[in-house]
């Protein structure tokens, strides 16, 4: 059993938890993920590591209540325990050897973008962060990003916080204004990563994206997380989760991510009735 030692609601949908898992806390690096199960009959879900406190043996993840398992996870409070957590899985994001990098985060993907940006900064890069949300009530980590970025831009679709517009609008504006990035790192919804890549391809800026695929074991056994990169089958869990965004077949990723949509919707409704007494 793995005790939840910290829990903080970041907004209505998004929560940060710290879990006592000393071995993972000492091993995890930015860009890696864990797989956890709240209860013994829960699904295994991958969540990217947000932060680690190796001294105290705590792993932090940020989740958005989206489906049944994250709703189950949300019922657990500080002092209670997760049934399972395993990791760190996947390869760390490469964060050294850069002069200037733009980190683009979308929605809850910002939880993952943050440690990557922090590491880049620590390793001597000049870091520009652009985060995007639908509206002000969904904004997370604004203070954290502003503290570690050389320049930070907050975007919302409806203009209710930061600037009005999409992350791609800001990125294009910066590129056109003459900013020279060695690399762009984009982490967020597949559709956002796709559009970031279309943009950076146009301007010839190398772009790394982080896949959050459907997977079961996370160790290279099930093959559920496969995607096509440069015409070849790759596995997000052992070959990724980071890939060269200009070579990823995003349309294929999008349709694979919706495979279980009907099932998930049903399960979510069941969970709503059961766990929150609504719908």
């Amino acid at each position: 059993m793995y005790k939840i030692v910290f829990k903080q609601k970041l907004n209505d949908l998004v929560t940060k938890i710290g879990v006592a898992a000393p071995e993972i806390a000492s091993a995890a690096k930015a860009g890696q993920f864990v797989i956890l199960r709240p209860f013994d009959d829960s699904e295994r879900i991958p969540l990217t590591v947000h932060d680690c406190d190796a001294d105290n043996g705590t792993v932090f993840v940020i989740y958005q209540k989206m489906g049944r398992t994250t709703m189950e996870l949300d019922t657990l409070n500080e002092g209670e325990s997760l049934c399972d957590i395993v990791g760190p899985l996947g390869n760390p994001t490469v964060t050294h050897g850069f002069k200037k990098v733009a980190v683009v985060g979308g929605g809850v993907g910002c939880a993952i973008a943050f440690p990557v940006a922090k590491d880049l900064k620590k390793n001597g890069a000049q870091v520009t962060c652009i985060t995007g949300f639908r509206s002000s009530d969904l904004v997370i980590l604004e203070k954290e990003f502003s503290q570690i970025s050389d320049s930070f831009y907050l975007m919302t679709d409806d203009g209710s916080a930061g600037e009005h517009g999409l992350v791609t609008n800001k990125l294009e504006e910066l590129i056109l204004s003459g900013e020279k990035f060695d690399e762009v790192i984009a982490i967020g919804p597949i559709i956002m990563m796709k559009f970031v890549c279309e943009l950076t391809k146009k301007y010839g800026v190398k772009t790394i994206i982080s896949m959050n695929s459907i997977m079961v074991d996370g160790t290279g056994m099930c093959g559920g997380c496969r995607l096509t990169v440069d015409g070849e089958t790759k596995f997000a869990c052992v070959d990724g989760p980071d890939f060269d965004g200009h070579k990823v077949d995003f349309d294929e990723c999008m349709r694979r991510s919706t495979f279980y949509k009907d099932f998930e919707t049903r399960e979510r409704e069941k969970a709503c009735r059961l766990l929150e007494g609504k719908i």
Partner: peptide, 14 residues
Amino acid sequence: EALCGVYSANEYLT
């Protein structure tokens, strides 16, 4: 092989 409904036996059985 990337269509929805294509499984590896490992995934299906797991």
